[in-house]
Write a protein that binds this DNA or RNA. Structure first.
Length: 559
DNA sequence: CTACTTGGGTAGAGTACACCATAGTGTAC
């Protein structure tokens, strides 16, 4: 039986091909919009289909209904099949290249017969693109750079993907009874934001039997005590074999790394001995350091008080700050999001939908803000759970936020973030951010660098100046927990802490499920040694209210 | 293609920016 996800994918694929073929852009848009409507549809999709009730979903008209019903009935779409015939498969891949859209790809295909990335790269290198009408040297170079980046990025996966992979490996390895003990190690154990390989340490009882059983699960190569599985995931998998407890612990430390960290501590790997990691650190005259913090950056920190092990954990989080709802581009109602927060043990929340200039995200004009605020108060009264009236206000090109000061003053909590105009020189971007930080109503600088891991570089700005300004202006810094962002980069956390900055770790959730992404932000915070006391989400309700009124007066709900 | 308004027809996300070409298009957010 097809499910919601299959239909969304089908509609998006149809839109892509229509776009490539130069179909009417509103028709293409209708398919894209239809996919979005279904993505946001809250009810039971399968039953809506079987009850023939799709016409109740806004954005799904006659045409799309026919496509969906057909797909449910016969498992395919005749429209999609027809569209697809004669379109090479690589076209989809080409759409993934930044700077290349349907129109340009169409020209490349019809003029030069380019139908995949390999051919495109070759044509660029032969200078054939620059000769086409509408193309030039700059475009050609940009495409080459993008292809290069794609190749680099394909060697990594994001943290949550690595975790997913690891889960699959663990469930398969658990079938092999010669494995007495198993532990994740390497980049994933250190909570790195991107991972280039998966690593496990195994304690094995019988090597021959183990290898025999392993070959039933994986195709592997063996070299010394290390087994590598190359073509199972997009990144390689390494199993490090040990046969005694002591060996297991030593290997765990060595493979956890990082290499630079261990050599910086002058860890003599031959001398490593002990029942567990704590003992091993102790025997070498070091305090135990949690895996996440075992990085080169740790060794560069001068202020001793910053080097205590991070005590951040999910159970200390009381405030769910910065999340979205159906009002802007979220997939759940405010009411549902609050239920999600309550279920997860949060004690209060601040809804921060997009502001009015975020048109692409259905941002809120003043009138709609008022409506959401009203609802927030209602929910607060009904559920006896504090719902702060927040906003994620766009930082405009020159640094002002996109509501008047008067209007801004009516929010309980203001996140300021950049969502457009990323390409500015460092000086301009820095002063743009500075102005936003100096705005008296700004409480939090959202995803400070704008990076999208493995996809978009951070914008250029003077990070030190910005972190200094956050400290000076009492503006907290976000560690956006979305695995695509993990922004602020953990490498800057020690510097910010030294300056006395406060932090806020937020899932930027666009659905109930995404609230759980907060754990990746916590891992990232732990990498910088962050303490609960430095994270405003760990404040209790009274402390958080106090934080909100540290600079400006704010009117909370009347008791 | 969809929604809305009207009973057949029309509008539909807005905008900055890079690039190529020297006025306009394509793309991304």
């Amino acid at each position: 039986m097809p499910d919601k996800k299959d239909i969304i994918e089908l509609l998006e694929n149809i839109a892509d091909i229509m776009d490539f073929k130069g179909e009417n852009k509103f028709k293409v848009g209708a398919y894209r919009n239809g996919a979005l409507s279904i993505r946001r549809f809250e009810g039971d999709f399968a039953s809506a289909v079987s009850q023939k009730e799709l016409d109740k979903i806004k954005g799904i008209g006659k045409g799309l209904q026919a496509v969906i019903y057909e797909y449910f009935q016969i498992g395919e779409s005749s429209l999609f099949k027809e569209l697809k015939s004669g379109v090479p498969e690589g076209i989809e891949q080409l759409l993934g290249i930044k700077g290349l859209g349907a129109k340009k790809i169409n020209i490349l295909y019809s003029e030069l017969g380019i139908s995949n990335i390999g051919e495109l790269e070759y044509a660029c290198k032969e200078n054939r693109l620059a000769l086409l009408k509408g193309f030039g040297e700059a475009t050609q170079n940009k495409i080459l750079t993008e292809i290069d980046k794609m190749k680099q990025h394909s060697k990594f996966v994001l943290l949550h993907t690595a975790e997913e992979f690891a889960g699959e490996i663990i469930s398969r390895l658990q079938l092999i009874k010669e494995i007495k003990k198993l532990e994740i190690t390497g980049e994933l154990r250190r909570g790195m934001e991107i991972n280039s390989s998966l690593n496990f340490v195994l304690l094995i009882s019988d090597a021959n039997k183990f290898l025999k059983n392993l070959s039933a699960e994986f195709k592997y190569e063996i070299s010394g005590e290390m087994i590598s599985v190359k073509e199972y995931f997009s990144i390689p998998l390494f199993l490090h074999l040990t046969y005694t407890e002591e060996e297991f612990n030593r290997t765990l430390i060595i493979t956890t790394g990082s290499g630079a960290f261990l050599s910086g501590l002058n860890f003599n790997t031959h001398k490593i001995k002990g029942k567990n990691e704590e003992e091993i650190f102790k025997s070498l005259n070091f305090n135990f350091i949690i895996p996440e913090m075992r990085e080169e950056e740790y060794l560069k920190v001068k202020k001793k008080s910053l080097l205590a092990n991070s005590d951040l954990s999910e159970k200390e989080f009381r405030g769910l700050l910065h999340f979205h709802t159906l009002y802007s581009d979220g997939r759940n109602t405010l009411d549902e999001m609050i239920d999600g927060a309550i279920e997860r043990g949060f004690k209060y929340a601040a809804v921060c939908d997009h502001s009015k200039s975020a048109i692409y995200a259905n941002g809120l004009i003043e009138e709609r803000v008022l409506k959401e605020k009203e609802e927030a108060e209602k929910i607060y009264r009904k559920k006896n759970f504090y719902v702060f009236q927040g906003i994620e206000s766009d930082i405009l090109a020159e640094g002002s936020l996109d509501y008047s000061d008067e209007f801004l003053s009516t929010f309980h909590f203001v996140v300021a973030s950049i969502h457009s105009r990323f390409t500015m020189d460092e000086e301009k971007m820095t002063s743009r951010l500075l102005k936003a930080i100096e705005n008296p109503y700004t409480d939090l600088l959202g995803h400070p660098s704008g990076r999208l891991l493995l996809s978009r570089d951070p914008y250029k700005f003077n990070v030190r100046k910005i972190l200094d300004a956050c400290a000076a202006n009492n503006v907290a810094i976000e560690i956006n927990a979305h695995p695509r962002r993990l922004d602020l980069d953990w490498r800057w956390i020690y510097y910010a802490r030294e300056k006395g900055c406060l932090f806020s770790i937020n899932p930027d959730a666009h659905s109930i499920k995404e609230i759980d992404l907060i754990k990746y932000g916590i891992i990232t915070g732990r990498k910088g040694g962050l303490l609960n006391s430095e994270v405003i989400n760990c404040y209790d309700l009274a402390e958080f209210k106090k934080f909100l009124t540290r600079k400006v007066k704010r009117k909370f709900y009347q008791e």
